[in-house]
Computed example of a mutant assay.
Amino acid sequence: MRHLTVIGGGLAGLTAAIAAAEAGVTVTLHEAHHTLGGRARTAPAPYRTNEGPHALYNGGPHWTWLQQRDLIGPLAPLPPLEGARLRLRYRGVLRRTPPFAMLKLLRPGIRRAPVDADFLTWAAELAGEEGARAAAHYCAVALFHHDPGALSAAFVQERLRRATKLPPEAHYPRGGWDSLVDRMAARAWNLGVRMETCSRVDTLPTGAPVIVATSLDAARRLLGDESLTWPSGRTALIDLAVRTRRGDAFAVSDLDAPGWIERFTAQDRTLAPAGEQLIQGQVPIGPHESRAAGVARAEQLLDLGLPGWRDRVTWRREAVADGRTGAVDPPGTSWRDRPAVDRGDGVYLAGDQVAAPGVLSEVSFTSALTAVSLALGRNTLDLEHA
């Protein structure tokens, strides 16, 4: 293989382009928008909001891959313990600690959850129904699904374990996700990757392997393959800037229903002007639930964690992320059952809803490396450590 085409300039597309170029392949990357980054874009100042919820976990092989190439860069530090103020809504009030029943599911040595059972049924046997529901709702921070208890027990357990790990695995690039995207783009450029923005591809090129690193919906349309579907979440998003006031919570997790709000400037003051705090709330909503209903639930969390926030608002934005928060696995399925990376005839998929392991953005990295290794006919492990 002498030439590879990559369609999509998000994290998956940039990873694929870098990995292939490092192997000596000539790469052309097409991005339909005028900027790279996909869903990892960050809005320009003064309010540097991410395009939807993101977190970069350090527990997967992608972290090593990024570190080896000096691509991670400065990370926003966790606020000091006295300023962290993580709060949990449980039975309608804020508390500092999770209910004891939920802690039963976090004990070391707990047995591995089955793939075939739903999480609520499995967890209720260990912690009771109330503890199981609280644990499932806490997982909204890494699932973005309106009913986590109905998903595969194995799928939810892994995310519960990693979302509650201490010290935390979740990290945020300082300055927003654009800083990571810019470093990856510079790496690709220095390797000779040709990156064409505002370049929408409607027909697959012929004569060379192609990696389609788009959303699954876009890949389905481009490839004309109706089998390219997989369930995802639907999430109401609210971004706020408020005037700073002492005592605001760093984050509030809703254990009564799925939902999470976080004050991102507690870690990274560069995301908003001096004297203001940038907050993002995400509340998973059902297929037929309105954005307004999700925003109303986010406002309830804000009322508890940031008293008087309504009188301090300087900027506000709302949106719905539908099918844009990664794959979720129903009972009886795992990542192996998702649409395969290898589509045949030299076409490969990469992204966060395809058959590759990992949590959140890890799936994009892993699937991209897998796609390149298949295109090159190489072992994935060799590629990751090249």
Rank of each mutant, 00 (worst) to 15 (best):
E129P: 11
R324F: 01
T203I: 15
I238L: 13
A45Y: 13
A40N: 10
V181D: 03
E196R: 15
M1A: 14
E262A: 15
G224Y: 09
I72T: 14
V242T: 12
A296W: 06
H34I: 02
L103Y: 09
G109C: 05
D178K: 14
G52R: 01
P209Q: 08
A140Y: 02
A298P: 01
T366F: 09
A40D: 10
P331H: 14
S373F: 12
R312P: 00
A21N: 11
I285W: 02
A356R: 04
G308V: 03
G377M: 08
R243P: 07
S290G: 11
Y172S: 13
D303Q: 10
I285P: 01
I72M: 15
P273I: 03
E31L: 05
L14Y: 05
T229M: 09
L360W: 00
S367G: 07
F155E: 01
A293H: 07
L78T: 12
A375E: 06
G332M: 14
P284W: 01
R91A: 09
I110S: 11
V210H: 02
R378N: 07
P53K: 11
D147A: 13
D147C: 10
T35I: 09
T35Y: 08
L369N: 04
W65E: 12
D254A: 03
G8N: 04
A16D: 03
W309I: 06
L36R: 02
V242R: 06
P287C: 12
A298Y: 03
A16T: 04
R245I: 10
L349I: 00
G38F: 09
G247S: 11
H30K: 02
L103A: 10
R220Q: 01
T164D: 02
G247E: 13
A16E: 01
V93H: 13
R133E: 04
L105F: 06
G305M: 02
V141G: 01
Y47I: 05
A113S: 08
A132T: 02
A123H: 10
E22M: 12
D342H: 12
G175A: 06
E318K: 12
Y90A: 11
A266N: 08
T333H: 12
P287Y: 10
L255T: 10
V372N: 07
T366V: 14
L381K: 11
G60D: 15
D345W: 12
G323A: 05
G224W: 06
R312G: 07
A218Q: 06
R89W: 02
A45R: 15
L240T: 05
A236K: 00
E125P: 10
A292H: 09
M195E: 11
D70R: 08
A154H: 11
L223I: 03
P53Q: 12
T314F: 08
R317K: 13
G281Y: 04
L223E: 04
L180S: 12
A293M: 06
R187H: 13
P108K: 04
L160K: 00
H146K: 07
A292V: 13
E22Y: 13
R338P: 01
R297K: 05
Q280R: 13
M184S: 10
P61F: 13
N190Q: 15
P287A: 14
N190T: 14
A21K: 12
G175Y: 04
Q353V: 08
A134K: 06
P258S: 05
L222G: 08
R174G: 10
T314V: 13
A218N: 07
P79Y: 15
E130D: 13
P330L: 14
